[in-house]
Each structure stands twice: as C-alpha cells, then as structure tokens.
Design a protein around this nucleic acid. Structure first.
Lengths: 222, 222
DNA sequence: TTGCAAAATTTCAATGGACGAAAAAAATAA
DNA sequence: TTATTTTTTTCGTCCATTGAAATTTTGCAA
C-alpha cells in the first residue's frame, strides 16, 4: 500500500529536489552545448567543454544524452506531438488529405515562425545541420522516424479508409516533396518566407499528383 | 609536351601497376570489411581488423575511405548513374512523369533483383542498415543527396516545363512515398517481392496525388 | 640498370567520443 | 540521525580519426 502510494505520487508529479535538479542540469547542458556550438561550431566544441560549462563531469553528460548529437535534437519530439495532436483533434467530416495538409502547414509555420519560442534554437539547428554532414544525417533520421510514426497514426485514425502502405505513401509523398523542395531551394533563397512558400508549393504538387494538371505533368520534351 | 602526353595518358586509361594495385587494395578493403561486418556486425568489427584482413596498415584504410561507414556505401553512386542515364536517354515524347516512373521502377528492380551482381552486397547492406541506426542515418543522407542531384538533373532536362522547386517536389514526393512505404511495410513483409510491390503501390499514390480518386483521398472520417 | 622524384604506406603520437565499474556524494525515507 | 537509493565523479579502456614524419614502392629517364 505504501509502495503503491509512493509509486503513484512520484509517477505523476515529479516534484522533489532530485527531479528539479535533474531538470536544471539537463537545461544547463542544453544551453551550454548550444551556446558553444553556436560560438565555435559543433565539431570544434568538446564534450569536456560542454560539461565544464554546465558544471558537471564529462561522464555525467552521458546520463542525460546518448551522445553529442542528441543535444541538438533534444526537442525533436515536438514535431510528432504537433502532428498527432492534429490527428487526435479531428472533426467528423475531416478528410485524410485535409488533415495531412493541416499537419504540413502547421509544421511549416511552426518551423519558420518568428514568434516561435524555440525559434532561435531552430535557427541555430538549421545552421548547424547545414554545415555538419553528421547532423544532416541525424536530422534525416529523426524526420524519417517521425514519418513512420505519423504514418502509423494516420492508418490508425483511418483504419477503414487507408491501408498501412497507403498511409505511409501519403505521408512520405507529402513530407518528401516539402523536404526536398525546401532544401533544394535553400541555395537560391534562404529566407524563412521563401522556405514557407516553397514548402507550400511542394505540398501542392504532392496533393495534385505528379501526373495531374495541377501537378507536374507537362508537355512532351522537345 | 612530355608532360601533356603523360597527363593525357594517365587521365584516361588508368593502367599502370600503381593504379591496378590501388584498385586491388580498395577491393580487398571492401571485401574484408563487408565479410567482417556480415560475420560480427558493424560496430563489433574494428578498423584494425579490417585493415589486417586486407593486409594494409590501419592508417592506409583512411586513404581509401573517409570512415568506416563509407565502405558500406561504396557503390552508392550507382543509383544516381542509373537515374541520369535514363534521363539522358529520353526520347522526344517522353513525359516528366514517364521518366520519373521509369527511374523509380528500374531503381526498385535493381535493388530487389536476384540477378543483380551486387545483390548479395545489397542484401547485406539492408541488414546492416536496419540494425545500425548510424548506418540508417547515413543511408538516408546518401539517398537525400541523390534526390537533390536528381532534382537538378530533372530540371535541366525540362528547363521550360519544370521549375527547380517543382522538379524537387516531384522527385521528393515520388522517392519519399516509396521510401516510407517500403520501410513501414518491412515490419510486415520482408521479401523482395513484397518490397517491390509496396514500392509500386506507393509510386502510384504519389502519381495520382493524395487528393485524386486513384490516390489516397477517402470519405470523411466517421 | 640505376638513380631520382612522386606517390603510397607505415609508424608514431595525440585527440576526443563513448562506455563500464567502483568509489564518493547527495537526497530521501524511516 | 541513520539506512537506503539515486546521481555524480573518478578512473581506466576501447576505438575511430587525424597529423606528421619516416619508409617503401613505382614510374620514368638517363
């Protein structure tokens, strides 16, 4: 009984000096790491420096993050949360496409909005990812995992209407179009507005389909 | 003159003991590495073991590959070559969509064909990538780079008909759909035939568009 | 063939990320 | 306060990666 009460008490609240201290250490590590990455670059800052700046031992870093890269993507779950929240809050009458569009659009807005709380973080992350191939690879992995989970959630939200494969294809087409288009366009335009617009256009292509009139199909080549 | 002749002679043929030896060393490294990876796993085999198995010093490994992961993707350029060859060989009358379909289809066939010379290698790579997150991330990066290049090539092949953004969106939608669908379906079915069929279906979804009748759009949710 | 210059390989040393294990310190419950 | 549990630190190790210098191999020309 005591044990049960204890379990309940601690599983929900997460008060206590211990927990608060852990959160503070975690935050300190994140802030120290991001500041150093931003100042000297990702490769150039060592774990020892990060740990020192956060006033913990180097070894302790690893009880908070699996590795150096993980700090950069510490808030990566938010994108999926955003998406699943939209799926969860769907109204009768919502279509698969409509929800998918809303997810992509809100995701784009979130990532490119100046008002975003984590905006500076997102900005820094973009910079780091663009200049560090290892981070680029990791970013793609994070996004890919998100897509797989989103596909599963989409299938579960429309079990009758969408096979798992179709759900995955839909998510992949939409996200893939936006992803490749935005990055490809980065060499041209790097403003947030441009990223948003490019993403919108890419989503439109995916929605219309590559062979439909609104899509990409054009006249035979000369 | 002497120098020019020499330059010409060596830039094209690539004969000479030196070059042949380098090729042999490279092959030895690839074969040693893949064999060891297959036997003991990727993380578990050290560079020292690979180098020893190929009869070179550990340091020499790095004059052939930038890192351990690179051996696994040593032939990754082939996918892009396949694609650009198809683009280059287009006939008057070919449509963007038609070419894209052919690229995806041949790529799928190539990756899942038993007759493929590199089939065993591809099979092993799949296994390694599925069990090693670091390799998964790297694989995604390789594929992503390929998509960016393919998008550029596609735009250049149809400069009038396709904007760079539309080309990128088209490539991204197609590849993204296939990619996510195939991997999502891997938990169900892992046969080559199933992978091929899943890819085909996903491509069809991307082609039809998410909102068209042949696509994914379904009735409102209940 | 011999000797020289260029290219490739090896050796040696160092850095830094990651991890396991035991000792030490801090927080909590009794 | 004391016993217990959780965290942190220390310490030691492995291994990938890289720079630099020394050594060997190859290509070429006299």
């Amino acid at each position: 009984m005591d044990e049960k009460n204890k379990a309940v008490q601690y599983s929900s609240g997460m008060v206590g000096l211990r927990e608060r201290k852990k959160q503070r250490t975690r935050q300190a590590l994140i802030e120290a790491a991001l500041r150093l990455f931003s100042e000297k670059g990702f490769e150039e800052t060592t774990l020892a420096e990060i740990a020192a700046a956060a006033d913990v031992s180097t070894r302790t870093f690893f009880s908070y993050f699996a590795g150096k890269e993980d700090v950069v993507f510490h808030d990566s779950a938010k994108r999926l949360d955003l998406a699943t929240a939209i799926l969860a809050g769907r109204q009768p009458g919502d279509t698969v496409t409509g929800l998918l569009v809303r997810i992509i659009d809100e995701s784009l807005l979130w990532a490119t909005s100046e008002e975003n709380m984590t905006f500076e973080g997102a900005r820094l992350r973009l910079r780091l990812v663009l200049e560090e191939p290892a981070l680029q690879a990791r970013a793609l992995l994070v996004l890919f995992d998100t897509q797989l989970k989103l596909a599963k959630a989409l299938h579960e939200a429309f079990p009758e209407e969408l096979t798992p494969v179709d759900a995955a294809a839909a998510v992949g087409a939409m996200v893939g179009a936006v992803q490749v288009a935005v990055v490809a366009n980065l060499e041209e335009e790097r403003s947030l507005r441009a990223m948003y617009e490019t993403g919108r256009r890419a989503a439109e292509v995916a929605l219309s389909g590559l062979r439909s009139p609104g899509g990409v199909e054009k006249n035979p080549a000369g």
